[in-house]
Design a binder for these strands. Sequence first.
DNA 1: TTCCAGGAGC
DNA 2: GCTCCTGGAA
Length: 351
Amino acid sequence: MPLKPSADGFAPTLVRWQRAHGRHDLPWQQSRDPYRVWLSEIMLQQTQVVRVRDYFARFLLRFPEVSALAQAPLDDVLALWSGLGYYSRARNLHHCAQQVMAVHGGTFPRTAEQLQTLPGIGPSTAAAIASICFGERVAILDGNVKRVLTRYLGFDTDLAMASNERALWQEATRLLPQTDLAETMPRYTQAVMDLGATVCTARKPACGACPLLGACRAQALGTPEAFPVKTRKLKRSAQTLWLLWAQTHDGAVWLSQRPAPGVWAGLYCLPLFDERDALMNCLPLALHPQAQDQPVIKHVLTHKDLYLHPVQLVMPAGSLPQMAGAWVSANQWHKLGLPAPIRKMLSAANG
DNA sequence: TTCCAGGAGC
DNA sequence: GCTCCTGGAA
């Protein structure tokens, strides 16, 4: 008997499907320890599973529990996070660990409502932790789930409007399991994430392998890829930045820490300038002939194209007193938190 | 080369 | 409503 796009049968179908066809081998699935689930959920925000695996393992090795993370210097956390992107997540992660220690006595709160008060934990992440670890009946609504639900329901209003997003959240709550919550909620939450990641994909969804086949509105319409509907007014601007790439003969580079708000906040970076003149004005005149413009690197952010112009300068050791920063030896900068394009550029030049 | 997925904070 | 990053797919 085919399902109707109603609440009946939706959750049980997904729970059964998860048992047989969901993912069970992810490292953070081996326990319902809130620390591990929290750590993985923060890393999985805006980031694919394949990229998270190694970072998760390294973090857990270095910080086996929340107290270790709370005690670590922020620089260590950023260094370990380097390359994963969206560095405010790392700063919030650290801040959250400290708050769990200071405010909650080292134990994560057990409800989504309380979890949401912690830094870096929004409504969806709070629901993920509360449902997986504590069986609370709360709905996650990340990108995967929006896709699954809008397709299943044929939900075709614009999610860019807050009222429509709220309506979808209500639908998500209506579709949750009704019974045996301690047992079904963790598996249901995992099921919608798994279905969105492996079957109900953004492009070329594998409708033939979907347990909701026959009940899904979008599949019946033949236009699954038309969901979810979200108008975006993304105007991407361009910005040129000049990088002072000062290097000694033995491979040390001049690095300074990025200020708190803005791109790459808290990371170590080559000094950045808006204009080439501003960069050159920070150098002694005698060094100007040594300056060599390197090929432009294009680095794309969500809504900004960065054009990075490195100006390389090999010079004797000695300080560059006109600007903040320090010489960092090749052994040391490898271990620092660096933006991905900077790390890549330095590594290509120095092996 | 361009396009795109992916939540929280402010 | 705007800001934040990256790598893989098209």
